[in-house]
């Protein structure tokens, strides 16, 4: 039997998607911050929430456990940690493309920004115009803000930079 590696486990987890954005894997979202293989049937996964109050965290944790159990891992342990805090810069390039395809504007890079003014003029995911305004920093989920495009006259959401 081949030796179980971290890379294999990460590949297995590719099938676990964000429950609210089903085109985005948890890997690409950047919430899986550590994988440790402790034995051929013992894996520890460290996860961190996008937002501290994210209500989907327990669900995602359960899905990761189930994905590992399905592959025959008897001891699948998932812990929540803030050691590596999530920031929107942890979303992979593939994840950013998936967000856009889903109709959500991806967050601008270089997070940990002092100034949030750049939330104005976010590129519209429908028509690509930057003639947009932020309507509210709060949207249908904690990780989204609401914007309006003056060019195509559509309201759209952005995955917030954090």
């Amino acid at each position: 039997m081949p030796v179980l590696t971290e890379a294999t486990v990460r590949e297995w987890l590719e099938e676990v998607k964000d429950p609210e954005i089903p085109v985005l894997s948890l890997n690409d979202l950047g919430v899986i911050t550590g994988i440790e293989v402790l034995g051929h049937s013992h894996v520890q996964v460290q996860m961190t929430p996008t937002f501290v109050g994210c209500p989907a965290m327990d669900y995602m944790k359960m899905e990761v456990e189930q994905a590992l159990q399905k592959r025959g891992i008897q001891q699948a342990e998932v812990t929540i940690s803030f050691e590596t805090p999530w920031s929107s810069d942890l979303i992979s390039e593939r994840g950013r493309a998936a967000l856009k395809q889903f109709g959500l504007a991806p967050p601008p890079k270089q997070a940990l920004i002092e100034d949030l003014d750049f939330l104005e003029h976010v590129e519209c995911p429908n028509c690509g115009s930057t003639e947009t305004q932020m309507k509210s920093p709060f949207g249908p989920t904690l990780c989204r803000s609401i914007h309006y495009c003056s060019h195509c006259k559509e309201t759209f959401e952005q995955f917030k930079p954090l």
């Binding site: 109050g53 803030f82 709060f138 949207g139 904690l142």
Partner: peptide
């Protein structure tokens, strides 16, 4: 509507932060 969502979102953040 936007204010309703804003206060609800801030509520969710704060309760979640208190939990941690």
């Amino acid at each position: 509507l936007e204010e309703d969502i804003a206060f609800s979102s801030m509520a969710q953040d704060k309760v979640g932060q208190s939990y941690q």
